[in-house]
Design a protein around this nucleic acid. Structure first.
Lengths: 226, 226
DNA sequence: TATTTCGTTAATATTGTCTTAACCCTGAAA
DNA sequence: TTTCAGGGTTAAGACAATATTAACGAAATA
């Protein structure tokens, strides 16, 4: 299998250098010169790895990263940032925008190649074991690591409680969960919240993911049915 | 009758705490510190209830649960898991390993005791009526978990009272249930409802599932016959 | 600090379920 | 044949459970 790498930088020199070195190693490489183009190219090219400069005209790396992560196909790809050494990467260190790693400029070809190989290795492992941490039921994919839900291609970032409620219901499609049980599972046995709280969260899930997915059994509880 | 409870956790502190509180309530308690020991102790001790941590050395809770369920004597016992809240309950919520319920850590003694009592109450009922969660009698399948009735492939979603009445009658096909008994079982001994109420519910069941399935014994009661 | 997002609740609306009243039917005893 | 007891049937209304909306404080975020 040939791996695909997308390079994004506004300096053509750097793009050429990196591309040359990666292609020499047998990777398929495409390039983009700003964030907006990167998002477009990503959708067509579907790379396993994106190497992206943070500072760019038109749309910066962070923003592009977020946009890509919001695409249904943008969950799996590894995104690594290129940064000037002294650049303030405190912002990205937390990877709030969904970046996985970074590499400091100036970039030495050797180091780049070995890093890329390491990333792609990680990508392979990740997709191997993805089945365990991801639940997939009838077009609805729940990624417990990233706290992200994908429904028929649309990506949702659900708040914690909603996410947990959803994860619970989806864990056994068709099974009815009583209110009592739900309270235990999602809120814990020491927290006391009113019954309406569950309704409201159910409502939000229905709003976001589809009314018909969550069925009410009056006097009993709720169930998820694809 | 004294109930027997088996506690399984790798932390001695927790075992001590739980044991103390349960013994104070009059339960017979034994403990084990990993899954393997739990299975052994179970065979000797034959408890009605097992409280088990999910994460343990040697053999984890899930695996132990499965092994116990595979024993001839492991069908009746109620197995509840101790879990850190927000722990990944996707695996256990589906009860793939045969667990019945769980309680979230940190565990407050009060809550523990009341839960244990509820579980043991359920155990008593369970063995009383041998109410397995699925009943299948002559093309009629009652799935208490999914709260769904299937009759010759057709799926019905019955309201609560109807469902309970049906479940009662079907639990002993051919047996006649007196009106008094039905009132006790479905409505509870404190609720007062007129006699016509039962008729009406029977009517609805006949309408939905077939006239001939529910036979009236005048002056006595009703029975279900496939 | 300013701002936004979350979680919860209160108040109200809405829905499905349960119960009942009123009346009908049947068979057996008077 | 009447009468009566037990059950059958129907639809209306009572009732309880859930839905919905907005609003508030708390928490996270900028």
């Amino acid at each position: 299998m040939q791996f695909r790498v997308l390079l994004v930088d506004d300096e053509q020199d750097i793009l050429d250098l990196l591309k040359y070195n990666l292609e020499k190693e047998g990777f398929a490489v495409e390039t983009a010169t700003n964030g907006r183009l990167a998002v477009q190219t990503f959708q067509r090219f579907q790379p396993q790895l994106i190497l992206m400069d943070v500072m760019m005209p038109e749309m910066d790396g962070m923003e592009a990263c977020r946009e890509i992560r919001d695409l249904p196909s943008g969950q799996e790809v590894i995104i690594a940032f290129l940064t000037a050494r002294n650049e303030d990467y405190s912002q990205m260190a937390g990877f709030e925008s969904g970046g996985d790693d970074y590499i400091a400029k100036p970039i030495k070809p050797r180091i780049l190649v070995s890093k890329v190989k390491a990333w792609l290795k990680r990508w392979e492992q990740k997709t191997d074991s993805a089945a365990s941490s991801n639940v997939d039921t009838g077009g609805l994919v729940i990624d417990k690591e990233k706290y992200v839900v994908t429904n028929n291609g649309q990506v949702f970032h659900l708040p914690k409680k909603e996410f947990e409620l959803l994860a619970l219901l989806v864990s056994a499609p068709g099974r009815v969960f009583t209110r009592e049980y739900i309270l235990n599972a999602v809120w814990g046995n020491d927290v006391i919240v009113g019954d309406r709280t569950i309704d409201v969260h159910i409502r939000k899930l229905r709003e976001k993911l589809g009314e018909e997915l969550f069925k009410t059994i009056k006097g009993v509880g709720y169930k998820f049915e694809p």
